[in-house]
Design a protein around this nucleic acid. Sequence first.
DNA 1: GCGACAG
DNA 2: ATCTTGTCGC
Length: 229
Amino acid sequence: MISCDDELRRWPTDEAQARAVQDRLRPHVRLDEAGPEPGFEGTVVGVDVAYDDERDVVAAAAVALDARTRAVVDRATAVGQVSFPYVPGLLAFREIPTVLDALGRLARTPDLVVCDGYGLAHPRRFGLASHLGVLTGLPTIGVAKNPFTFRYAPPGPERGATSPLLDGTEEVGRALRTQTGVKPVFVSVGHRTGLDRACAHTLHLAAEYRLPETTRAADALCRRALADA
DNA sequence: GCGACAG
DNA sequence: ATCTTGTCGC
């Protein structure tokens, strides 16, 4: 078992340390659980972060939706100082401290967390969603807007179509068409979830727009929190 | 060395 | 991520 508090206390200050942390925590990712089944009774929480580099301020939001109806049932925000620069592959170190703060302000523990970014689809198989999952112990998935460094063949034009997201020949995630005729999103497993259910949840959450409601709600809220900070 | 590169 | 105008459309 890893201690979230200890990890935060020993937050890396340079890239080499950060990569070492990823290599140390990666074995704690659990890939043997299917995760919450689609339509489960509980909450899906979306998290997102906004920055003001001028003021060195970061604002995070966590929005809890009813997993079945997608109705917002709770929301929380947190504001902090930027703890790491943006480096491709090390995004988690920039976002996680403030996200954890916001998650801790929710009234109840999430049953599933949807992150803006990747989980296993990562150069060292330990993206933001996996990192957040290992620190919290919660089931997590990553939904990204861009394919990062990975390759994919365009999925079919219909909503629900998928194609493998590939690192060489390894499927690290899936391109998922959430709306007919619209650019796909890129789904990967974070922690304690399988790829099939990760895609099913994403599709259910993206009933109306390209991005899941969790992401849209968290994005709007963290922007507002940043403006008010 | 050069380009690519989640947010 | 963020900087940014107008514009097309429901």
